[in-house]
Computed example of a mutant assay.
Amino acid sequence: MDESADAPLTAEIAAHAPLLRVLRLTRNVTRAAQELGIPQPTASRRLAALGEHLGAPVIVPEGRGIRLTRAGELLAEAADRALDVLASGVRQAREEIDPQRGHVVLGFLHLLGRSLVPRLLRDFRVAYPHARFSLVQGSRQDIVERLRAGTIDLALVAPPPADPDVEAVTLAEEELFVSVPAEHRFAGRGHVRMTDLADEDFVLLEHGYGLRTITDDLCRRAGFTPAIAFEGQESDTVRGLVAAGLGIALLPKFEPGTPAGVAEVPLAPRVTRAIGLVWPVRHPLPPAVAAFRDFVGDRAQPVT
């Protein structure tokens, strides 16, 4: 197939890719034109020109709006991807000129926002005072999915995923404790075993959180399924429910000190989780992102 025959259409799509992208979302030529700041007749002429180059219409009327034809959908999808790639290239080019003013989109677990993330950002900005960060919080599953989708650059999660599409370095091994109400019978113990917890009510994070996966796995290995009293999305909420006497939970040690109403009891044998910085391997990282990755890597050990 002679690819040069498609060159005129490719050039036309490149020129009007933003229109296709917006039209794919709005399904309305007038609104798409308004969002792009162009007259509606101009948008209509551009769409008609695309159809002429293609040899078939890219839109057809539907109700009070329009819908993309199958061919139009294919072109809009391609335009959408191309604009994302171009935006990434522009970003890398700008940061290549001035990496000190780069932008890093960092995803992390809610629990890590208490001390680890602020400490890393503070120390990094000593060397890169003009670096900008966008911070995205969520569950481990959510953060890893966003990393794979390319909407975040780097992720701090626990534990790092075993995935050939990403690389990781471990920042720390964090010990987990059994958080119980202060008046609980386990509160004064030097340690407890997982088998001791079989008859307890648990307060758990929802599925998709790393601590939930670890807790379920530890209970399974101990030969029981945890009785779930409550499920939450943040560790502080879980601790609050524990303090209210509504159950127990497996959590990292609270910093800077044990919260009121809660006792933190070590597990025997000791249980830890790895906290890792993760990044995609499919494309080169922008300079500022790579600089932050390397900064963290200097303080970490490779995942094995």
Rank of each mutant, 00 (worst) to 15 (best):
T170E: 15
R146G: 06
W279K: 02
E3F: 05
I152V: 15
G37E: 08
V242L: 08
R119Q: 14
F230Q: 06
E200N: 04
A149E: 12
L74F: 08
A198F: 04
V265E: 05
R24T: 00
F230G: 00
R273C: 03
P118W: 11
P61L: 02
A155Y: 02
P269V: 07
L86Y: 00
P252Q: 05
T69P: 00
P159I: 09
L68K: 01
M1R: 06
P129R: 10
R185C: 02
L205N: 01
L241R: 10
G89N: 11
E167H: 10
H110T: 12
T304R: 15
H130I: 03
A168H: 08
E167F: 03
V169N: 05
A49T: 11
V22R: 07
R101L: 07
D2R: 15
T237W: 12
I248C: 04
H110A: 14
H283S: 09
G208Y: 02
D236G: 02
R140I: 02
I66V: 13
A227D: 09
E62P: 00
T272N: 09
T26S: 11
T215M: 11
V85P: 03
P284I: 14
G247H: 07
D142H: 14
G37Q: 09
G276E: 09
H103F: 12
N28Q: 09
G261F: 03
A158R: 02
A11P: 01
G51T: 12
